[in-house]
C-alpha cells in the first residue's frame, strides 16, 4: 500500500508522491516551500507550531491541516499559500513574537512574511523558547537519553530537566542546543568544561591532537551503546 503513488494537486499543480507522504514533503519535492519551526527531517513530526498549515479540500468545504503530518491522499486539493493559510500563519507568528520577544530567527521569519510587530501583550522580553519541542524530541529520539522533557501544562509549560535539577541522564552532548531554532538553551564551554542545563561536563581531549572531543559522559554513553571500551573513543575524528 505504502509504495503506491497517489496523485494530488498542490497549488494548482498536479503532483505524484508515494501514498502516505506528508504534504510538507510532497510540496518540497515539487519545489514548493512551506515555512516550519518545529519540523525537522530527523524527528517524528508532531505538529506543535502550526506554521506549516495548508488548506485542503475544495470550497466551501476546506480546512487547515498541518502539512508536516497530514498524509497525501488521492485527489486531495492542497493550497499552501491561500488567504486563509497566510492569515493563520501571520497570526501564529504574532503569537510567537509575543511569547518569545528575543527570538531573532523568529523575528526574521516573521518579517519575511510581513509581520513586523505583534498586537498582543509581550511576555518576558528575554524569552526565546517557543515550545517547539525539537530539543526534547532530539534528546529522546536521536540521542536516546531523555534528559529533558516538557513539564507542566499551558500557563507554566516549559522544557525542563526532572525537578529542574541537574539531570543524571544528560550526557552533555549539546544536541538540544544545536537544534534549537531560537537559541534558547544556555550553553558554555570554558577550560575543558561544558555547562548545559546547569550541569558541568568535563571534556575529553583527543589522545593524539589534544583538541577536545566531547564530554566524557557522552563518550561513556557511546561506549555503552557500542560495547567498545570507552578509551577507543579518546581519539578525535580528525586523528583517526
Amino acid at each position: 500500500m505504502k509504495n503506491d503513488s497517489v496523485s494530488l494537486t498542490i497549488d494548482g499543480k498536479p503532483v505524484q508522491v508515494p501514498a502516505g507522504t506528508a504534504l510538507l514533503l510532497a510540496a518540497k519535492a515539487n519545489n514548493i516551500d512551506i515555512p516550519t519551526l518545529c519540523y525537522h527531517p530527523e524527528l517524528k513530526p508532531e505538529g506543535h507550531c502550526r506554521l506549516c498549515v495548508v488548506e485542503i479540500g475544495t470550497a466551501p468545504r476546506t480546512r487547515l491541516v498541518n502539512s508536516c503530518t497530514y498524509p497525501a491522499e488521492p485527489g486531495l486539493v492542497v493550497q499552501t499559500a491561500s488567504a486563509k493559510v497566510l492569515a493563520s500563519r501571520r497570526m501564529v507568528l504574532e503569537l510567537l513574537l509575543a511569547q518569545a520577544p528575543a527570538g531573532e530567527h523568529l523575528k526574521e521569519m516573521a518579517a519575511a512574511m510581513g509581520v513586523h510587530e505583534t498586537r498582543f501583550k509581550k511576555g518576558d522580553p528575554a524569552a526565546r523558547c517557543i515550545l517547539c519541542a525539537q530539543c526534547v524530541r532530539t534528546c529522546r529520539e536521536v540521542v536516546g537519553v531523555s534528559a529533558i522533557s516538557m513539564a507542566f501544562r499551558t500557563p507554566k509549560k516549559r522544557v525542563a530537566t526532572p525537578f529542574a535539577e541537574q539531570s543524571e541522564a544528560c550526557i552533555g552532548c549539546g544536541s538540544c542546543v544545536f537544534i534549537c531554532p531560537t537559541n534558547t538553551i544556555a550553553y558554555t564551554e570554558k577550560d575543558g568544561i561544558r555547562t548545559v542545563w546547569g550541569r558541568k561536563f568535563e571534556l575529553q581531549p583527543c589522545n593524539k591532537c589534544g583538541n577536545y572531543i566531547a564530554p566524557k559522559a557522552q563518550l561513556e554513553h557511546w561506549a555503552k551503546l557500542t560495547g567498545d571500551p570507552v578509551e577507543s573513543f579518546y581519539v578525535c575524528k580528525d586523528c583517526r
Binding site: V145, S146, A151, R153, T161, P162
Partner: peptide, 30 residues
C-alpha cells in the same frame, strides 16, 4: 521525589517521563 526516581527504574521509563506526567495532571502534587 525519591519515590518517583524508584518508580522510573521499576517501570523502566525515563525520569523525565515521570516528571512530565507528575506536573501535567492536576491530581498530582510534588
Amino acid at each position: 521525589k525519591d519515590e518517583l526516581k524508584v518508580v522510573a527504574q521499576h517501570l523502566n521509563v525515563p525520569l523525565t517521563r515521570v516528571y512530565s506526567v507528575a506536573t501535567f495532571f492536576k491530581m498530582f502534587s510534588l
